[in-house]
Simulated scan of single mutants.
Amino acid sequence: MGIENLKPAEGSTHSRKRVGRGQASGTGKTAARGQKGQKSRTGYKRKRNFEGGQQPLAKRLPKIGFHSNTVKPYVINIEKIKAVAELEEITMETIRGVHKVANSVAKIKLVGAKAKDLASKIKDENVTTTGN
């Protein structure tokens, strides 16, 4: 048996209906499109979301919500987490070593009464204090 001998199973395929081929065919004259109207015309294509001229649902409902693209920093209070304040050099990696921070966090902000004093220890541009 070769690939050239393959045929579809019996009854699995149907021949295409040939419309507009005379009155005797049963689909002559209007070619099963009805009488007049937009859908009977050549080149008609119904737009997605079209509701017959009625205002579409997407336009009737109010626009709600807002998504900001600015990255909000993860805030660490150094008065509560003293291990961060005691680090020699403050970077993202050293903070992750002493405090559990998700991998998705891109920026960290240190807050607290003495956060400005830590500015000289910070060696990473993604870590900031309330002062800078």
Rank of each mutant, 00 (worst) to 15 (best):
A24E: 08
K100G: 01
R96M: 12
V71C: 00
L118W: 01
H14Q: 15
K59V: 11
T70A: 15
K47A: 14
G22L: 07
E89Y: 05
Q38D: 11
R46C: 10
G112L: 02
V19K: 13
K59D: 09
I108L: 04
G53Q: 08
P56I: 00
S104V: 04
L6G: 13
A9N: 09
L110H: 08
D124R: 05
K45A: 12
P8N: 07
Q35P: 05
D124S: 03
E93Q: 11
I81W: 06
L118N: 03
G53D: 11
K36S: 10
T70F: 08
A32V: 00
G11I: 04
A113K: 15
A31H: 05
Q35S: 08
K80I: 03
K63C: 00
V98S: 05
V101F: 00
L110I: 14
A102K: 15
R33H: 10
Q38M: 11
E125I: 09
G43P: 00
A24W: 04
T128I: 15
K121Y: 04
G20A: 05
G65P: 10
E89C: 06
T42Q: 05
G97S: 13
E125M: 06
R21A: 13
A115P: 01
R60W: 04
A32K: 06
Q38Y: 05
G2I: 03
T13C: 09
I76K: 02
K100H: 03
D117R: 09
P62K: 10
Q23H: 01
A106K: 15
V98Y: 00
A9K: 12
V105C: 14
M92N: 04
Y44V: 14
V101H: 02
G52D: 11
G52V: 06
K109P: 00
G37K: 03
I90C: 05
E86I: 02
A24P: 08
R48K: 13
K7H: 07
T91D: 04
E79I: 00
G11D: 06
G65K: 12
T94L: 09
F66C: 07
G2V: 03
A85F: 10
H99R: 06
K39R: 14
L57V: 15
H67D: 11
I95M: 06
P8A: 01
V19H: 08
T42L: 03
S104G: 00
N126D: 09
G22K: 12
Q35C: 02
V71N: 01
K59W: 05
K82H: 11
G65L: 07
K39P: 02
I108P: 05
Q54E: 14
A85S: 14
G112T: 04
K109M: 13
V111Y: 06
G112P: 00
G53N: 09
N132R: 11
K17R: 09
V105K: 10
T30H: 07
T13D: 06
E79F: 00
L110P: 10
K39M: 11
E88R: 14
K39D: 08
A115T: 08
R48Y: 05
R33A: 07
V19M: 10
T42I: 01
A115C: 11
T94M: 01
N132D: 15
E51G: 01
G52W: 10
F66T: 04
N77G: 08
K109C: 05
G22N: 12
N77I: 02
G22S: 10
K39G: 13
L57P: 06
K121M: 08
A113Y: 13
G53T: 13
K39W: 02
K123L: 10
K116I: 08
V75K: 12
S120W: 08
